[in-house]
Nucleic acid binder design. Structure first.
Lengths: 353, 353
DNA sequence: CATTAGCACTCAGCACCTCCGAGTGCTAAC
DNA sequence: GTTAGCACTCGGAGGTGCTGAGTGCTAATG
């Protein structure tokens, strides 16, 4: 028998296995499940009357509810929570699926910066829900490389490469016409000045520079822009949340009416909350599950999130995960999210190695 | 009286104004409109009976339908088409709105490469529908600048800047450890070789290069990757369609049931068709309207698209537009799309100037 | 004493009505 | 050509009754 932690206020084994059965059944059918169908489909070794008593007890404990008196039971958020606690650390992804996912990741080794997108896509297809991913973001941005490219006489494109591969492109309008040659010279100076530095360090370095001559002025001017961009990069808590497979969520029967769906989509655009959530996850080391109304904003009460951080703690972290209806296949979701996050760990380590 | 082209098979003025009234009414209320409410709300100077006769005639002509016998009329796709043809070139956007939009564009001058996103957002909010935009893409990609940044011992990031500001980042795995110094040397060589060139030209140049020595091999190796990236950039018909304001579309009562909505979202992911459509629009110079079932794929039959190209024909073109239910405020949509496309023209010219 | 068979009860969902009114087409009068 | 009038249509709202899957409770049981 596998060791199994039972959450606080834990139930006896039989109650727990019935809770499991209810959840399993409800997750796959989306129909409230009654005592009769339960004994029919699961070999529980007791009669429906007994099951009814237990269901009543589970309801008393707040783990199940009734949509109405003469209907079957459905899990409450607390019910899902209990269930998740009881399985989360045992849920390993089957070898076959691990291989399939690994294979997908192998395909696109070279299309850099796109890993996190692939993670979202993979999670979406593997779970038939929406997959989410953010790019790994460093605690303090380190500039790796600067470049200035002339676009027209008085317009140049400033390109900033950060250590973990993120790019920023900023247009710089110039006070007077500047040749590409001079731009290059300025870029080399700035590059030497700022490469490997964080915003704070770079500012000091820039302050010390000699602002004389046309090149000096240029360096100063562009330097300011670089600093602004780096600070901006630092400031944005979580970059951009890439999502894929939202269509899967639309297929769930609980979202047949599009107003509920709209709420979910609105929630996804609520960067404030999502950002906070991701920051919180990024701070911890493990898969985390947020179920229905546990999510602060009202519009998230119909969905659950399974999220995990990846990257190098203290250097650069991102988040991958899955969004689906609360009626979600949690074991599967937790398994894939955990696996994908370890894959992403490998990739990030590969870069920092 | 403003000059007004009437489409082929044109109606008499009275019929046309009644068609207009029906469309105007239906667009704003989403309820089938009857003869009575029509004479009530629009001073047509005739009785409801007369209007009924005309409505019957319009229905006979295929411009209106009945959802059922005892209901009011709603426009058919052909009805909308007629309407659109009759107003498209007169629909100017009011000064106030023009100013508001211009103002929005003024704000973000420097955040390059993001204009097209802003266009989508602007169109979305101005019309309360979904806004679409693609980045301007050149007919034949010209490389503007190449750069190689060391990431780890055997891993480098290749950055390609194209003339119109698009960026490509590709990871290059190296056969043996290479210092940043050598990478820079190789980058300079490649840059000199390829900058300003198209894929075809660059290939010739690369073929002529001397492949000896460690740097030579490196240049060759990376050069291949550059070529591949440039060809890839050339090949992808339309980059990426950025969309915003999909929530607005979800609000329309015709999408109350989410299965219809799902179809629309699926259609948006149908890159093949969308790409073809955009290519077609990019080829012409004007605002184009695609109404409901005129769109080839079945899943697009509930929506209309108002699209316009922007950019420099023959050099780089992109597309901006709006997607909404067929029951859409076409004059408004056409006006804003046209205006935004001219704004985008100005921006592109600014770059190529 | 936990389990179970049995029974009365509940109630959403469906099918079936009926009625209402906004809409129609047609016809005859203006 | 226009219009008033009228018979007709039919979706949608609201009411009724039935069904069946579900419940809780109680009394019998191993």
């Amino acid at each position: 028998m596998a060791r199994r932690t039972r959450p606080t206020g834990s139930l006896d084994l039989r109650s727990e296995s019935i809770l499991r059965a209810v959840i399993e059944e409800y997750v796959s059918t989306a129909v409230p499940v009654g005592s009769h169908s339960l004994v029919e489909r699961y070999s529980l070794g007791v009669s429906s009357a007994t099951v009814r008593n237990i269901l009543a007890a589970l309801e008393f404990n707040g783990l199940l509810t009734h949509p109405h008196t003469s209907a079957g039971r459905i899990p409450t958020d607390a019910g899902y929570r209990y269930f998740v606690e009881s399985i989360s650390e045992t849920s390993q992804l089957p070898q076959v699926e691990q291989l399939m996912i690994r294979h997908q990741f192998g395909q696109v080794q070279h299309a850099s910066e796109q890993w996190f997108r692939l993670a979202a896509t993979t999670l979406a297809t593997a779970n038939r829900t929406a997959g989410l991913a953010t790019q790994a973001k460093p605690r303090a941005a380190h500039v790796r490389r600067l470049d200035l490219v002339s676009i027209s006489e008085r317009l140049a494109s400033l390109i900033i490469v950060f250590r973990e591969g993120a790019l920023r492109q900023v247009l710089v309008t110039l006070a007077e016409p500047v040749e590409q040659e001079d731009l290059t010279r300025a870029a080399v100076i700035l590059d030497g000045l700022m490469a490997g530095r964080t915003a704070v360090d770079a500012e000091r370095a820039l302050a010390r520079i000699d602002g004389d001559g046309p090149i000096g002025t240029l360096v100063r001017r562009v330097g300011e822009r670089v600093l602004a961009a780096v600070r901006d990069y630092d400031a944005t808590g979580i970059e951009e949340v890439f999502s894929d497979g939202l269509l899967h969520v639309m297929e769930a029967p609980e979202f047949e009416r599009s107003d509920k769906l709209r709420r979910v989509f609105a929630a996804l655009e609520n960067r404030a909350y999502l950002g906070e959530l991701l920051d919180r996850v990024a701070g911890t080391g493990a898969v985390q599950v947020f179920i229905g109304a546990e999510n602060a904003p009202e519009e998230m009460r119909d969905v659950s999130l399974v999220l995990a951080p990846y990257g190098e703690p203290g250097r650069a972290v991102g988040v991958v995960g899955v969004l689906g209806p609360t009626r979600m296949a949690y074991p599967q979701a937790i398994g894939t999210v955990r696996f994908v996050s370890t894959l992403m760990n490998e990739l990030v380590q590969h870069i920092y190695a």
